[in-house]
Design a protein around this nucleic acid. Sequence first.
DNA 1: GATGAATGAGACTTCATTCAT
DNA 2: GATGAATGAAGTCTCATTCAT
Lengths: 191, 191, 191, 191
Amino acid sequence: MPVQKTDRKEILKRSLHVFKEKGYHKTTMADLATASGLLKGSMYHYFSGKEELMAEVLKMLKNHYVDKVFSIAYDRSFPAILRLQKLAARSEEIFIKENGGCFMVNTGLETVNTNKSFTTIIRDFFNEWIKCIAYIYKEIYTPSEAESQARYAVAEIEGSVMLMQIYNDPNYLLRTNKKLIADFRKSSEKQ
Amino acid sequence: MPVQKTDRKEILKRSLHVFKEKGYHKTTMADLATASGLLKGSMYHYFSGKEELMAEVLKMLKNHYVDKVFSIAYDRSFPAILRLQKLAARSEEIFIKENGGCFMVNTGLETVNTNKSFTTIIRDFFNEWIKCIAYIYKEIYTPSEAESQARYAVAEIEGSVMLMQIYNDPNYLLRTNKKLIADFRKSSEKQ
Amino acid sequence: MPVQKTDRKEILKRSLHVFKEKGYHKTTMADLATASGLLKGSMYHYFSGKEELMAEVLKMLKNHYVDKVFSIAYDRSFPAILRLQKLAARSEEIFIKENGGCFMVNTGLETVNTNKSFTTIIRDFFNEWIKCIAYIYKEIYTPSEAESQARYAVAEIEGSVMLMQIYNDPNYLLRTNKKLIADFRKSSEKQ
Amino acid sequence: MPVQKTDRKEILKRSLHVFKEKGYHKTTMADLATASGLLKGSMYHYFSGKEELMAEVLKMLKNHYVDKVFSIAYDRSFPAILRLQKLAARSEEIFIKENGGCFMVNTGLETVNTNKSFTTIIRDFFNEWIKCIAYIYKEIYTPSEAESQARYAVAEIEGSVMLMQIYNDPNYLLRTNKKLIADFRKSSEKQ
DNA sequence: GATGAATGAGACTTCATTCAT
DNA sequence: GATGAATGAAGTCTCATTCAT
């Protein structure tokens, strides 16, 4: 019955959920098709294969972060500390509510030795994340110090998200975010 | 014709290398058998299946860390700062030299939704790690503050190891270790 | 958006090229559609399916041979030997230049056990070919001897075309044609 | 139930029958497995895939021809004409009785544009065939003339086999063989 | 007439596991 | 204990064909 049942964007969104749940290698094209309301064979109208599909999921997600999350950092109509808090709040929404964990890291680590093309996209994601945190930090640090601190911050957040997953306890992330904000406030006041 | 005499421990060691390289789901029993000098069928004399084998690999590795690495923290014949440095040095050896990344985290994230039994072992590993760092931190912090700081430290290290893998650049870990040691020294001196 | 106006004849011609290249079973409807400047679904406005399409390709080609090639044999305004030479020259053009090999034979052998309807058309083709050669041979042989010799000639030509394909060397056909013409000349002179 | 049900050689023989019947592309691994009394997956214990399997079938067949058929030509305990007759008789057995047609040619033409590795083996087969006929012809022709005549003979035989398949009439081959033998006898007597 | 999304059967292949020897 | 043939379910992907627009 050839009626349009869905579109690429919709398939990508639904595939993202499945990949989050099961990881790249454990997810089958049948899983993705079912989630999209299609049959296995129909997926190949939209994507040349599983690998391309995942690459597009990653790109979509990266763009979403850049447009909807990291952009918060550059909105100078709010004070730096508030922007940092907003970023933290958004990260909590994303990493905690939506089925636990950071999809970029989980995918990155699972595929780092088997799918180099994914790594490139994931690297872009981290570049953007570090850049946006550094932008805020530049209000109180030198540019090079800001970037260095941003890298530590991202590492600490991601490490916390990982522990959160292993322990199934969101407090790991919540505490780290609070600490990062408190540290920033303290450093601001020193000036 | 028995190609090679071997035993469980030897199989576990060789399997660890393969799992590190390819991850849990991408590794086949044939890969593990080849690495062990056995044929596929022979693996089942030693382990009931792939899942049990991985569980034993994780246990072996956890015990190795407890005995050979985390034990450093409890050797009070060295000053705290030196023990911290030794731990850092060992972690660099492990995470950088041996094919990049933290096997516990990589396995944990890949299987967190599909193999609960692995997660339990990995959680034990992190409990021990945090505990040993906290033991050192207690020399300058209150017990509860020490544990809190230990958790941050482990999160930051693991986050750095992850970025190290994604960026294929060991400096992420090296810088973090230096920072953690410097912070400890500074805090020590304040007292 | 109609990409390209076309018609059955044009589709058949373009499909012939693709079938020549890949054979019947390896050719997909998508290949044929692409070659025709259409999309897959549009092919079914012209032909009921792949099998009918191939049948029509074979008929078109057979008719082309009858009208444009075999007809040479019946043009008594030229001497027999010249007609034979012309036929040889045309066969060289067809079998050598256009991507090597005899489409009728290649298709016939590939489908002889699976698509009886093709075989009928291909048989017609050979009937016509043998008949036209026999027509020339009758100038020097009895009718029954002429037909017999014509069959040998066609067999030898086709065998040479086959070896030409396997060895990727057009000389197999060229030598055979020369020999057939020389034999005919010799037999003519004896009379 | 892991008991040896067959072996490589047996699979090759049975696969040959199936490939003869359906051609390379139309034959599925399931067809071959069924013919071998195995399940699809079990075929991959013996062969890395369909392509390797066919390559081995072709090699086996070529070797069979060399050892059991072409070798007749070199047995000087029989006169040349008798050796030629024996070869003809064997070729009739092979091409007529066993499901019609020459497997080497059918496979060669079907795959000449898609599987170069097959072509190499098939070329070897023809080299050997031409060589053995030439060996007999050298008794009455110069070496170079013998080889030339051998090539014509093989072409004519194969062309006849092809017509035999298309017309489903073994007389095409039978007549050609008779003619070749008669020609040889006539040429012998002239000397 | 042209489209192209959807189908669904079926292709090749992989792999954890079993078990007779 | 070791083998390796066999299994069978499941994986990714292909393709001739249909049909609503």
